[in-house]
Write a protein that binds this DNA or RNA. Structure first.
Length: 296
DNA sequence: CCGTACCCTAGTTT
DNA sequence: AAAACTAGGGTAC
């Protein structure tokens, strides 16, 4: 294993690793102590990307890592360490709710997950609690993913499109996917057979990219926005989930224009356009954790 | 654009 | 205590 540390003073706006990985953006990291979503401090998180094992923990002034390869380029990408949070916050709209969310969770970064796992996890997210979405991805990995032996421990990569397409709907249902099981299978088949790939949206204008992702089974506008924001680098995407819809109702009622597309345009504008997705993610996390005591 | 069915589980209420 | 009820980051038809 290789080891290293990325100094966080070189990361404009810093990093809050726990908020970043436990805020329902990425479902492909696990905590070594198993205490995901429990608001517990000091977690060590691990994942497998491109067949490489990565493990990280947040130290005082650095992001420390151990990995089967040089993890730094992976981490810079996966955790968007080069985003200038200070500038994003400073240039964002001057709105009380947003200021509060930014202040409460400073260091939370948008993730940049691999596209296929991201797509599947958000298909699974329909009508589902964050902790259970995570549990489903863990189950899929353990059941269908490639096994890696690292220092005597067994880990599972997220399944490839081929591995998931090879699963039967019944097997997928056994992973508690419910009505999402056929969606996952059909989408995995589309990717495995080369019929479509989520990364084909890259380079398109935002709304075209969103439309293009909805051809996958189980993907509507909301899930498409999640994939655009959390995997494809469209930082203007604002997924209209129930939390942000209630924030719209309470704080930006004039942005409710009825249809998804029109409301999306209005709230995107209100949240600062280019980086509206950052604002959405902070507000989402802030509302979702409201009332929950943040561990010191 | 609107309504409804869809699966499953933890947590709450009867 | 067992059973009914509810809600949870929606989508397809």
């Amino acid at each position: 294993m290789e080891r290293g540390a990325i100094p966080l003073d070189a990361c404009p706006g810093g990093l809050d690793l726990r908020s970043t990985l436990e805020s329902g953006q990425s479902y492909h990291w696990r905590r070594e102590d198993g205490r995901m979503y429990e608001n517990a401090p000091d977690g060590r998180y691990y994942t497998i990307v491109d067949g490489e094992f990565l493990r990280v923990r947040q130290a005082e002034a650095a992001l420390e890592w151990e990995a089967t390869t040089d993890a730094e380029p992976y981490l810079r990408e996966l955790l968007r360490l080069d985003d200038d949070l200070d500038a994003i916050v400073a240039n964002g709209p001057d709105d009380p709710l947003l200021r509060e969310a930014y202040a409460a969770h400073r260091g939370l970064r948008i993730v940049d997950d691999p596209a296929f796992p991201c797509l599947i996890s958000f298909i699974c997210s329909a009508q589902m609690r964050v902790s259970r979405i995570h549990g489903m991805q863990v189950t899929l990995a353990e059941r269908f993913g490639t096994t890696h032996e690292i220092e005597g421990e067994t880990y599972h990569a997220f399944p490839t499109p081929e591995q998931l397409a090879g699963a039967s709907v019944e097997e997928l249902r056994e992973c508690s996917l419910g009505y999402r099981a056929p969606y996952v299978k059909e989408t995995a088949e589309m990717v495995a057979e080369g019929e479509a790939h989520p990364e084909e949206a890259l380079g398109m204008d935002y709304e075209d990219a969103r439309e293009s992702l909805t051809r996958f089974v189980g993907v509507g506008n909301k899930v498409a926005d999640c994939v655009l924001l959390f995997s494809l680098g469209y930082l203007e995407a604002v997924p209209l989930d129930t939390w942000i819809r209630s924030a719209i109702e309470d704080h930006f009622p004039d942005c409710d224009r009825g249809s998804y597309a029109a409301t999306s345009r209005a709230i995107r504008e209100r949240l600062g356009g280019e980086y509206a997705g950052y604002a959405q993610t902070y507000v989402f996390h802030h509302l979702r954790t409201a009332g929950t005591a943040e561990a010191p």
